[in-house]
Amino acid sequence: MTNSEKNRLKDKAFQVFGIFCTFIGLVVLGIFLFDIILEGAKRIDWDFLVSLPSRRASRAGILTAWVGTIWILLLTTIIAFPLGVSAGVYLEEYAKKTKLANFLEINISNLAGVPSIIYGLLGLEIFVRQMRLGSSLLAGALTLSLLILPIIIVTTREAIKAVPRSIRDGSFALGASKWQTVWHQVLPASFGGILTGIILALSRAVGEAAPLIVIGALAYVPFTPSSPLDEFTVLPIQIFNWTSRPQEAFLTNAAAAIIILLIITFMLNGIAVYLRNRQQKKIKW
């Protein structure tokens, strides 16, 4: 074999390896989802969705968990949406190139890299103890809001950046003030992108268990929360709890709950992708 033939062979071999690597993760994921559906699907029925937790695996349900998850999603949106978008608007439209903006930018990148469990410790000390919110939905939502704030800020900035300069010029030239331009032109034009970012951030929040465990969210809550100051659990914590039990039947419960959690996660991601595609199609500058 000549040298160049050898090289070509190596090249081909790497190509095959490349295809293998590209799909190995997806194949493993596929196997896993299949395994989970096989194990969990049979457990999902109406009773499972509307039953309270129980010591007996066959009677236990996820009512408190999914209601808690929905509560957390709503509260987190209410808190993080205005805060994150405002901060993004400030950094992109008002504070360009100042020293403060530079520092804020570095700080936000840093926050994005802080492990979620550290946010849990922050929430435990500030919201649970200092603000005396206890291990409530509100404390949980505040903690998760801080966690996803960097994501919302970064995606808001990206979306705003995509609005062409000429639109702002056009608005200013008609006598609009900075805020009028932001409110009437920049935000509507970037809304699709901002919404996409928020939904992606929420899909991150919906799967978080660690920070909520640290602030004291419990696995066993015998009632559904009715106000933001009630104690709560969420799906990931319920899954964690069931996974940690030795009995096989609880693993089946965990698999069933995972299916529900994945449906929520994929739905959120699906909406985000749909919005992004629609946005890209709708506006051609």
């Binding site: 919906v206 268990a209 996974t243 995972i258 959690l261 991601n269």
Partner: peptide, 16 residues
């Protein structure tokens, strides 16, 4: 498609 791997909640990976 690869990004999907990063969106799966980590409890789910733990179970796996």
């Amino acid at each position: 498609m690869l990004e999907v791997l990063a969106t799966i909640p980590t409890v789910v990976y733990g179970f796996f």
